[in-house]
Design a binder for these strands. Structure first.
Lengths: 333, 333
DNA sequence: ATGACGTCATAAGCTGGCCTTATGAGCAGC
DNA sequence: GCTGCTCATAAGGCCAGCTTATGACGTCAT
C-alpha cells in the first residue's frame, strides 16, 4: 500500500469534475470495476446454474426463487453483453461464452472464499477452539487456503487468527493465548518446538519486457549482486535472507527502489521498473499469467523455511493437529 | 459453499430484525458468501483508502461522497466484525487486521479485473481493433492477464475474443475474421505460421493427504502408468498428450474417473479422490496454498506448446504485434 | 488566539435494484 | 390430456446505499 502512488493518478483526476449526481459520477462511471462485474451473489448463482443445469434448481441452492434467478441471470447477460445460458423447456445449459465467463467467475468466488475464511478467523473470539498466531506472509498467502481445507474436513472448528512477527507469535504461544503458531525465518524462537511445513523461495523476477527475461543461461551471482533491484526495505524478512545469501559475493548493489510492502514491490516489478526479489508465494499468479517472469540464478537457493510452532513439549492435539496435518510439507524435494 | 454455516451467526442477527424477511430467505442465509463478503464496490473503496490514507480522498477516487465512504467502510467493519481503519482527524490508516483484509481483498479485485477484461473481449464487436481467437485453456487462464497488460500499455485497443479449438481458430484466421490466434498442441495447423509463447506442462497432482504426496523419490513411469488416475475424457487435449507420452510404457491404466471439465478433475483431486493430471496453469493457486501437491515423475516431461498463430505470411502488425510482444516466451528453459 | 483547511461523523430523505408472490406458456412422458 | 418439469412476465414492497447539509475535532499559519 502507499508507496506506489505515482504511476497511477492520471486517471482519477477527472472523476471529481464536481457538481451534482450526473456529474459527480463523472463521465467514466465505468472506470469502476463493480459497474462492469456482476456482484458475488450473481456469480454464485451462475456457478450454481453451471452445476445444476437449471435456473430453478440453482435458485433453490442459493436460497432465492426461480423468477429472481431468472431475472438476475438475465440482467447479468445484459450487463456483460453476452448470452450466458441457453434456456430450454427442459433446463438451461451454459453457452460457450457462458462457460468461459463461469470459469473466470469461479476465480472471483474462490478469492472471496479465501477472504471469508480469513476474515472469519480474524474476527474469531478468544474462545475459539483453535487459536492461531501467524506471520504476515503466512497469514496472507497460505492460511486462508488451509482454513478452507480445515473447514471442509472439520466444519465445526472455529478458528481465530492473530497476525504478527515471530516475536509476537512466540509471545502468544508462551502465554497460552494461541494454540499453534506459524513463523518464517531461519530459526525457531526460544521456547518453541516446530516442524517445517513449507519452503518459501525468494525469486528474482522481472517484467517480460526486461532484458533478463530473454537471457539464455541463468544469471550469475556476481551479476545479480551488481544490479540495482527493487526490494523491500532493509530489515524486512525477505531482505534479511537476501543480504545473508549474498554477503560473501560482495553484498547487494544499492537498491533501485526500496518499498515498504510486498504489494508495492510487485507492482513496481510488473510495471517494468526493474528486477525484483519476491516470495514465490506472492507471485504465483503473476508468473502463471506471465505478467512476471522468473529469472533463474546460478548457485543460490534463497530459501526460507516456514514452520508450524508450539511451546516446547506441547505437541499439538485436537484441532491444532488437524490443521497441522493439512499443512505438512512432503519430506522430499 | 454450503458445508459450514453454524459456527457463526452471533452477530448479524440483529441486522435484519425485520420479521418476514428472515423467513423468506430461509434459515441458512449465511451459507452464501455474498452475505459475509463485502461487495466489490466496498473492496475497491477499501483499497483506495489504503492507497490514500484518507476516507475522503478514497471517496473521491471511487466517485462517491465522503459520508458515503464513511458509512460504507463502517458497515464493512460491522459485517466483518473487525476494525479496519484507524480514523484520526488527520486521516485514516489501516489497522493491522485491516492490512491483512486489504491484501485478501486485493485478490478478489484482481480476479474481478481479469473477469472484466475477459468479458469485455468476449462481448467485443467485430469491428474491434484486435480480434483474437484462442483455445479454451489459453482463453481461460492466460488471456485475461494479457489483456490487462495490453490495456495498461495501449488503453485504446478494443479487443474481441472468440474461444474454440484449434480448428476453429484456424478457420477464423483464414477467413480473416481474426487477427491473431492462440492454440495449444503439438503442431501448427495448416496455413498458419506461429511462434511458441509459452509451455503448458501437465502435472501429476494429488491431495496432500494422498500417499504419493509423502513419497521420497520421484515416481517411476511404470508406477504412474499402472495407477488409476482422475482424468479428462478421452479425446481431450490433455488426455492426448498423456496417452502419447505413455504409449510406449504400456499406456495408462483404466482411469479412476473420467470427467468432462478441467474444473471437475481439479475438484476431484482436491477432495482426495485420487491423483490427477492437470495443466500447471489450472493449478497454480492450489499448489501455492497446498490444496494440491505436485508429484515429480521420473523421465517424462508432459509438455505442450502454446503458440501464437497467424495466416502464413501475414506477420502480426499493429495491435496484434503489441499483444504478441506481451506474450513472448523467453527462449531459454 | 483565530480562522482556514483538513479530517471524519451524523441526520434526513430519495431511489433503484432485488426480492417476493401470482400467473402463464412451452415441452416431455405416462 | 394430465402432471411435472422447465422458464418468463407482471406488480408490489423493502432495504442498502446514495445524496445533501451540518457539526465536531485537530493542525497549521497568520
Amino acid at each position: 500500500m502507499s508507496s506506489n502512488g505515482e504511476h497511477r493518478g492520471e486517471w482519477h483526476e477527472e472523476q471529481q469534475a464536481g457538481g451534482r449526481r450526473a456529474e459527480a459520477y463523472g463521465s467514466d462511471v465505468r472506470a469502476q470495476l463493480h459497474h462492469r462485474v456482476p456482484d458475488l451473489g450473481a456469480l454464485e448463482l451462475l456457478l450454481a446454474v453451471a452445476r445444476h443445469g437449471s435456473l430453478g434448481a440453482a435458485a433453490r441452492e442459493v436460497g432465492i426463487t426461480q423468477p429472481a434467478a431468472s431475472s438476475r441471470i438475465r440482467s447479468m447477460e445484459r450487463q456483460l453483453g453476452v448470452a450466458l445460458v441457453d434456456r430450454s423447456p427442459r433446463g438451461s445449459r451454459l453457452t460457450d461464452a457462458g462457460a468461459l465467463v463461469t470459469d473466470w467467475a469461479r476465480r472471483i468466488v474462490e478469492a472471496a472464499e479465501a477472504f471469508d475464511a480469513g476474515a472469519q478467523a480474524l474476527r474469531g473470539r478468544r474462545d475459539s477452539r483453535l487459536r492461531v498466531a501467524a506471520s504476515m506472509t503466512i497469514a496472507e498467502y497460505l492460511l486462508p487456503g488451509w482454513l478452507i481445507a480445515l473447514r471442509a474436513e472439520r466444519p465445526d472448528t472455529a478458528v481465530s487468527l492473530q497476525a504478527g512477527n515471530s516475536a509476537v507469535v512466540a509471545e502468544r504461544l508462551l502465554a497460552n493465548e494461541a494454540d499453534m503458531g506459524f513463523v518464517e525465518g531461519l530459526a525457531v524462537p526460544d521456547g518453541l518446538d516446530g516442524v517445517v511445513v513449507a519452503h518459501d523461495r525468494l525469486m528474482i523476477v522481472a517484467a517480460p519486457s526486461h532484458p533478463w527475461a530473454r537471457r539464455r543461461g541463468p544469471l550469475g551471482l556476481a551479476e545479480l549482486a551488481a544490479t540495482p533491484l527493487v526490494l523491500r526495505e532493509r530489515g524486512s524478512g525477505t531482505r534479511q535472507v537476501l543480504d545473508a545469501a549474498l554477503a560473501d559475493h560482495g553484498g547487494l548493489a544499492r537498491p533501485l527502489l526500496e518499498l515498504a510492502s510486498t504489494t508495492a514491490v510487485k507492482a513496481a516489478a510488473v510495471s517494468g521498473a526493474g528486477p525484483a526479489v519476491l516470495s514465490e508465494l506472492a507471485i504465483a499468479e503473476e508468473l502463471a499469467s506471465r505478467r512476471l517472469v522468473a529469472i533463474p540464478v546460478e548457485g543460490v537457493e534463497l530459501r526460507r523455511d516456514l514452520r508450524a510452532v508450539w511451546p516446547t513439549g506441547h505437541r499439538p492435539t485436537g484441532p491444532a493437529r488437524d490443521l497441522l496435518s493439512l499443512t505438512r510439507a512432503r519430506p522430499a524435494g
